[in-house]
């Protein structure tokens, strides 16, 4: 069970307080009606599945109810950093 740092509560809490909310940093297209089926399809359905660090959203659903971002290694489950929704990842390159 993961130990996750909520950047809003500023505390480490157990995974059972959180819920997973999908890949992070997916931007909704500005004008959906103007884009092709293919672009819309990419936005809707295609998600990364990296074998290293993945940026994902979590919701502190049984806590402050805030959504935030987590950079997590998909092999070791090590959490490299967590940061607020409006922020970019601080670490550019993660050490293996």
């Amino acid at each position: 069970m993961l130990l996750i740092y909520c950047p809003y509560c500023k505390q480490y809490r157990d995974e059972e307080e959180f819920s997973y909310a999908g890949e992070a940093h997916i931007k909704r297209p500005q004008n959906p009606l103007a884009i092709s089926d293919e672009s819309w399809g990419n936005y809707l359905f295609f998600r990364k599945n990296p074998s290293d660090v993945h940026h994902e959203m979590w919701n502190h659903s049984s806590g402050c109810r805030q959504f935030f971002n987590v950079a997590r290694d998909m092999i070791t489950y090590e959490i490299k950093e967590t940061y607020c929704i409006s922020e970019s990842p601080k670490i550019e390159k993660y050490k293996k």
Partner: peptide, 13 residues
């Protein structure tokens, strides 16, 4: 509620 919160917080802050 969680769905609405997600859009409010992540896409339309």
């Amino acid at each position: 509620l969680s769905w609405l919160e997600m859009w409010k917080q992540t896409e339309w802050p």
